[in-house]
Amino acid sequence: MTNIMVERDGDRPLWTLRRVTGWIVGSFVLVFVAGIAMGLAAAMLDRGTGAHLWRDRIMLGVPVMVTAIFGGAAFLAMRRNWPRRPGPDADPWEHRAAARARRTLTVWAGAIAAIALAGIAVPIAAWAGTDTPAGLILLAIGALAGIAGLAWGTVHYMRVIDDHERRANLYCGYAGLSTYMVLFFVQMLARKVTDLPRMDDAIFLITALVAGVTFCIVRFR
């Protein structure tokens, strides 16, 4: 009978413990810093009137947290030498695998950072007012960063991922589209028979959440 082997890694338990601890501590620090940044930004956006405080917090806080968490994760990963570079006497497949992981990480981090930058720049531009030069410049930066990030990320990302991850993207896109359409039509019908306010922000956040969770389940389970 064939003896099925398990994953081999000499110092895996200790290495895994250190990695997990690092991620947990790092995540708490990042969320704490992102929370402070979010509060400061919301106060700035609010201009002391107290109006739209929570809407502005969400509007600016989500991209700030996304930038902080993904940027911090990429920083921690690189600081901890992940994906580990194989030695000079390693097999060719080890070099290919490490290069592939680095390419994927670079595309992920670059695209997410660009899109998150757009998410930060656009609401600040809205606050500054698009009738001022500063507001227009911020709006242009946000739009360009978002478009460039999406285009660059999509082209390179689809080149570096494997079939399994493409499948995860397919499920993620389908789940996101279905969620958005269902919620949009539910809102439309509900608004015809009630005086329900528009909830586009909530629909967007729920759609993004469903798509993200679907991707993670199919890709990493």
């Binding site: 064939t2 082997m5 695998a97 399994h164 991850e165």
Partner: peptide, 23 residues
């Protein structure tokens, strides 16, 4: 079974196939 016969880990097979370990 084929992987086990060659004493390869999932990560090693993934590297040889140029796919992720989860794949």
């Amino acid at each position: 079974v084929l992987r086990a016969e060659r004493d390869w880990s999932q990560a090693e097979l993934a590297g040889r196939l140029d796919v992720s370990r989860q794949a």
